[in-house]
Design a protein around this nucleic acid. Structure first.
Lengths: 105, 105
DNA sequence: TTCCTATTTCGCTAATTAGCAAAATACAAA
DNA sequence: TTTGTATTTTGCTAATTAGCGAAATAGGAA
C-alpha cells in the first residue's frame, strides 16, 4: 500500500495515470506524450507496476499498459478511511479541545 | 496541491496526521510518539505546514499543531476527481497478477 | 538580568531517485 | 539466419531528502 503513495507522489506518474484513465496505451505511445527519454518513462512504468496501479499486457513487441482502476479505487478509499474523511461534504468534525499542553513531560 | 502528495508520501508524516486526527497536540508531544530526533520531526512539521495540512498555534513556548481537516478532505476529493473514481465500491475488475514482465515463461 | 524549556534552523552525511545514453532483450518479418 | 522495432536494463550523474547533533531563537520563571 505504501508503494501507492510513492507512485502518486511524482507528477509524471500522475499524468501517466490520467492518460490511462482515458484509454489503454502502449509504452511508446505514453512516452510520446512526454519530453522525457524512454528509459525514464520505463522507470516510471516499473514504479506503477510495483504499486499494481497498471497492468502490462504484451502483444507482439509492444506492451499495452492498462489502468488498474480497482487498485486506485481501493487506495483512495483506504486513504479516506485512514484519515476518517467522508466522501460527503463534511459535518463539523469536533476537534478535541483538551490538548493537555504542558503534558506529562 | 502537489505539496499535499509530497506530504502524504512519507510514512512518518502520515502517522503524524493520524495522531492529529484524534486530537491536537504540541510538537513535543507528537515527537514523543516517534523514535526520531526532534529536529527531524520539526522538518516533517514544516512539510505538513507547507501543504497546509496542519496549522500551528503558538501558546507560550509550545506550538500546538492541529489537523486541517478541510485541506485533507479537499485533497482527497481532488484526487478522486482527477482519476474519476467514485466513492462507491466498484465492480471487481482484473487485478494485476505480476508486476514483472515476461511472466511465467 | 539569568536560567530553563520548547522548537526551529544550521551544517552535514547517507540514502533515494529522476534523468540520460548506451547496451541488452524480445519479438516479428524477411 | 539477419534486420528492424519496441521496451527494458545497465551504469552513471545531479538533485532531493530524511536523518542527526549542535547552535540559535523565543518565551516564562526566578
Amino acid at each position: 500500500m505504501s508503494e501507492v503513495y510513492k507512485a502518486l507522489a511524482d507528477p509524471t506518474r500522475r499524468r501517466i495515470l490520467q492518460l490511462l484513465r482515458e484509454r489503454e496505451m502502449s509504452a511508446g505511445e505514453i512516452a510520446g506524450h512526454f519530453d522525457l527519454a524512454k528509459p525514464t518513462l520505463s522507470g516510471h512504468f516499473a514504479v506503477l507496476r510495483e504499486a499494481r496501479l497498471v497492468s502490462p499486457e504484451k502483444t507482439g513487441t509492444t506492451i499495452i499498459y492498462r489502468l488498474n482502476v480497482s487498485v486506485l479505487e481501493e487506495a483512495l478509499m483506504a486513504l479516506m478511511d485512514t484519515f476518517k474523511v467522508d466522501p460527503k461534504p463534511a459535518a463539523p468534525q469536533g476537534v478535541a479541545e483538551n490538548p493537555k499542553l504542558g503534558g506529562p513531560s
